[in-house]
């Protein structure tokens, strides 16, 4: 992939912390949930201000259901494309997940069965999305609470095949890698070793909690040391173009969020971009 932009350290922009993000030092880029934007109405004030400062804004979709059995819906692709145009995005991101089946809405990102047959369907969905988008697409690994029976590929192989077949970029969520270590005993090192990291666009970092031996990726807690450990393992293999903190509720103080960004910077061991 020829031109993956340098993004630096960022945070997920949310309406609840718009002023916090706007005023926080050390934010190089932000992500905005695409389904929260209404391109016809223009940008939220705070995002407009950030864009005027030249800050990159990445639309992050949660509803395309690219891992679903149906092709992505044209109106959802048009929305994501319009979001990319609205913020002049360097790229957009989505998930390797399905969120609906027929009339049923899961309301969240569900893992895809990893069979060769399902891979063909997902790769075709991804190709359709790429054809409809004005900028490159990056796909994220999801956190899972359950495993499909009869999987034929590891998650890293599934992602690598998607990259090879479609040229899609990767958004590696290191919290989800840790999640899958706790919930399924999977090795973060083996996962990272199996990915084509030259296609890495950026990285997600987040906190969660364990309950009854199961990790819940809630984005409502401080990033634990183990997730920083996975981030360090990733940085030992590749210099990530960007690393972004996700926080989605039970928001802490501005100082606590800034400290989280500081810890990310320490782990990546990089000076601030720009």
């Amino acid at each position: 992939m020829s031109s993956i932009p340098r993004l630096g350290v960022g945070i997920g922009w949310r309406p609840e912390i718009d002023l916090t993000v706007e005023r926080m030092a050390g934010v190089d880029f932000v992500e905005v949930v695409a389904e929260q934007l209404a391109p016809r109405h223009g940008l939220p004030e705070s995002l407009r201000i950030l864009r005027e400062r030249g800050m990159p804004v990445i639309p992050h979709g949660v509803g395309l259901s690219l891992g679903g059995a149906e092709p992505p819906r044209p109106e959802r692709l048009e929305h994501l494309a319009a979001c990319a145009e609205l913020v002049d995005a360097p790229l957009v991101s989505e998930h390797v997940a399905f969120v609906r089946a027929g009339d049923l809405d899961a309301g969240h990102l569900m893992p895809v069965p990893r069979t060769w047959e399902a891979l063909e369907v997902v790769a075709e969905n991804v190709a359709r999305a790429q054809a409809a988008l004005p900028v490159p697409l990056a796909l994220e690994n999801v956190s899972a609470l359950l495993e499909w029976p009869g999987d034929e590929l590891t998650e890293e192989r599934f992602l690598a095949e998607l990259v090879a077949r479609t040229g899609v970029l990767l958004l590696v969520d290191v919290a989800n890698v840790y999640n899958n270590q706790v919930n399924f005993g999977l090795s973060p090192e083996a996962f990272l070793d199996g990915l084509p990291l030259e296609s890495l666009a950026y990285v997600h970092v987040a906190g969660g909690y364990a309950k009854d031996g199961v990790w819940h990726d809630t984005h409502t807690r401080a990033v634990p040391a183990q997730v920083h450990g996975v981030l360090a393992e990733l940085c030992a293999r590749v210099d990530p173009p960007g690393v972004l903190l996700e926080w989605d509720g039970d928001y802490p103080s501005d100082a606590a969020l800034a400290a989280e960004l500081g810890r990310i910077r320490e782990t990546t061991g990089r000076a601030r971009v720009g």
């Binding site: 679903g68 059995a69 149906e70 399905f98 609906r100 089946a101 027929g102 049923l104 809405d105 899961a106 309301g107 569900m110 069965p113 047959e117 399902a118 063909e120 369907v121 359950l146 495993e147 499909w148 029976p149 009869g150």
Partner: peptide
């Protein structure tokens, strides 16, 4: 046909998770 088989598996799982359907075979 791959889409149809994937649709059936995903619908069976979601029915169990959000619509009170029976647990699909093979899941914990």
């Amino acid at each position: 046909s791959a889409r149809e088989r994937l649709a059936a598996r995903q619908a069976e799982l979601l029915t169990a998770l959000v619509a009170g359907g029976p647990p699909p075979e093979g899941f914990d």
